[in-house]
């Protein structure tokens, strides 16, 4: 796993972005940027060479599930691995995210160990 990969963390709460950033930094990732919803994230993804997206579901503006769908629709972004980290815990939603092409799904509250596990799994499958 390339520790220099460029990661975008999308969450409307700055504290949650900070927690995820700290956890990722603990795992050795330092090239991290932030966005507060899908509408901010999408142009950043289209203009920047991101390697990985961590997104919340429930956000004002564009929600995480719609961001995921936009990413999968865009030929330049379709390959991007997307990890959802969200408090949304309905079975239908998890199935919906899977159908939309999510690479991993973590429900909040979560632990550092869970985050590491899912990251490892996602990049193991990709490589």
């Amino acid at each position: 796993m390339d520790k220099n990969m460029k990661i975008l963390v999308v969450d409307d709460f700055s504290t949650m972005r900070r927690i995820i950033k700290n956890l990722l930094r603990d795992l050795g990732f330092t090239n991290i940027q932030e966005a507060d919803d899908g509408n901010t994230a999408l142009p950043m993804l289209q203009n920047g060479d991101f390697d990985f997206v961590v997104t919340d579901w429930n956000m004002p503006g564009m929600q995480g599930i719609d961001l995921l769908r936009e990413i999968r629709k865009d030929d330049n972004l379709a390959h991007l691995p997307v990890l959802m980290v969200t408090a949304e815990a309905k079975r239908e939603q998890i199935i919906m995210a899977a159908q939309a092409g999510v690479n991993g799904y973590i429900v909040k509250p979560f632990t550092a160990v869970t985050l590491k596990e899912k990251l490892d799994k996602i990049f193991e499958r990709i490589s």
């Binding site: 429930n58 599930i65 949304e88 309905k90 079975r91 239908e92 939603q93 429900v107």
Partner: peptide, 22 residues
């Protein structure tokens, strides 16, 4: 409302449409 974002589930143990953890 299956696909609508609901935020944190506070009564997961009383519901059968949500997961109880990772």
């Amino acid at each position: 409302n299956a696909g609508v974002a609901e935020g944190p589930i506070i009564d997961a143990d009383q519901r059968d449409d949500v997961v109880g953890g990772q």
